[in-house]
Amino acid sequence: MPDKKTIEKAKKDKREGKSPTTQAGEFVHDEIEKVRRGKHGARSTKQATAIGLSEARRAGVDLPPPKKRSVKESTRKSAEYAYEVGQGERKPKRSPKVSKAVSEVLEHEPKNTASHEALSRQTKQAASRRTAEERSAAAKKASETKGTAGRSAAARKAVRTKGAAGRKKAAQKAASTRAGRT
């Protein structure tokens, strides 16, 4: 069950006009944090992501299930069920025995599947399946939706977080601009 804070964040995203995938991202992030804190584990980063997406659908995020043949039929059916529950089209059946069994299984799964390294590996793997054109289009769309202030803040953060080399370059650039003004 997602936290109230997570649901609020998703609702805020919806009010701001952000896409359903961005709203669902709040639930995925929450799920990854649960795995990192050791509340339960996950067999893979994909599983942690799938749990988060399922919670998002059940919470009412308008994230339709994947199309036929794009994923396993059982996965699609599960996503369809969660979506219908979230949209109020179906009443969820309570099954405490199954729920307890799933929780116990997840407790014994590894916790390192939500590490920074594992997530980075998964992200790179997913990106490699997309064409350069698709990746470029996604980047352009992201920069457009960020806005001027957002892009500026992201650039400053990039300089800060690039490590010692990035900070050194930033310091040199700042010094050269100061020298040019005087």
Rank of each mutant, 00 (worst) to 15 (best):
R69Q: 04
P66H: 03
R121Y: 09
Y83T: 02
A149E: 15
S120F: 09
Q122A: 14
K68G: 06
E144D: 15
V98Q: 13
T145H: 00
K97S: 11
K140A: 13
A137F: 01
E109L: 10
K146Q: 07
T131K: 10
K141E: 11
K72Y: 09
R94E: 14
P92N: 06
R121L: 12
E144C: 07
K146H: 07
A82Y: 04
V71Q: 15
P65G: 07
S95A: 13
K141Y: 11
T131G: 12
A82M: 13
Y83K: 04
T113I: 06
T113K: 14
K91R: 12
V98A: 15
Y83M: 00
S128F: 00
E133K: 14
T123A: 11
R121N: 10
Q87F: 02
T148P: 04
K146T: 14
E84F: 09
E107M: 11
S99W: 06
S78C: 01
L119M: 09
R121T: 12
E89L: 13
A118S: 12
E133S: 11
Y83E: 04
E104L: 09
G86W: 03
R76N: 01
R90T: 14
S95I: 13
A127F: 08
E104Q: 08
S128P: 03
K68S: 10
S128A: 09
S103N: 12
A114D: 01
A139P: 12
A101R: 03
L106A: 08
P65N: 00
S99V: 14
A149G: 10
K146C: 05
R69P: 00
E133C: 02
E107L: 13
V105Y: 15
E117T: 09
A126G: 03
A137K: 15
R121S: 12
P92L: 04
R94G: 09
P65H: 02
S136Q: 15
H116F: 07
V102N: 06
S78Y: 09
E144S: 15
E84G: 04
T113N: 01
K93A: 11
T131C: 08
H116Q: 15
R129H: 10
A149F: 06
K68A: 14
E89G: 12
S74N: 15
E117I: 05
Q87G: 03
E134V: 06
E117D: 13
E104P: 00
S103R: 06
R129M: 03
T113S: 12
S78V: 00
S143E: 11
K100L: 11
K124E: 09
A114E: 03
R130E: 10
P110Y: 04
A101F: 09
S70I: 01
E73N: 07
S74M: 05
K93Y: 09
K111R: 14
T145F: 01
K146D: 01
A118Y: 00
H108R: 10
E134W: 07
L119V: 07
Q122G: 03
R94Y: 01
A127T: 00
A118Q: 06
A114R: 04
S115Y: 11
K91I: 06
K67I: 04
R129V: 05
